[in-house]
Amino acid sequence: MHAQTFFIAFFGLAAVWFGVAVFRTSSMVRSALALLFSQTAIGAMFLAMQTEFLGVLQIMMMATEMSIMAIFMVMYMMDPGGLGAMEMTHQKRFSIAAGAIGGGAALAVAVLTPWGPVVAQAPAAAQQTRALGLELLGRSMLVFETAGVTILTAMIAATAVAVRRREGKAAR
């Protein structure tokens, strides 16, 4: 069981390290891929926590998601290669303070709360997948369907916002 703690901590550190790297590099593609590897490390943490389905899902989804993010960064940023080492931050002191306070508060809660007894054994992976499937199509079906419909709506809405307006209706 020490191995589990070790791997959780290891991948956790990796996730945070890559997370910090996101805002420390000036190359946008590096930034997006750092976020990807941060999310991949989180997926690996899931695997270390024996939530196999979620871990693999996280690893899969984020690869595509962050790559798409990378291309949008390259499209919409002035200096995606980071050659100019542009300053792209504002209200830095306030942000650091907010980040530190927010993170510190969460940390305090994490450390100080008496979490009670911890369950040693997780269900087997195959059993989990099966149970999650039953949950999805049973008790949580409404939530699941709502999420599905919401993402469809968001896709349509985002596309509608992004496509060019017709001539004549163009705002500017």
Binding site: V29, I59, M60, A63, T64, A70
Partner: peptide, 25 residues
Amino acid sequence: DLATGALFVNAAFAYVLVALIMAGW
């Protein structure tokens, strides 16, 4: 022999894209 093998194949294949983007950039 993962319990989520079929999904894992997908996950691994997704990184082909990442590799090609890196090779391109």
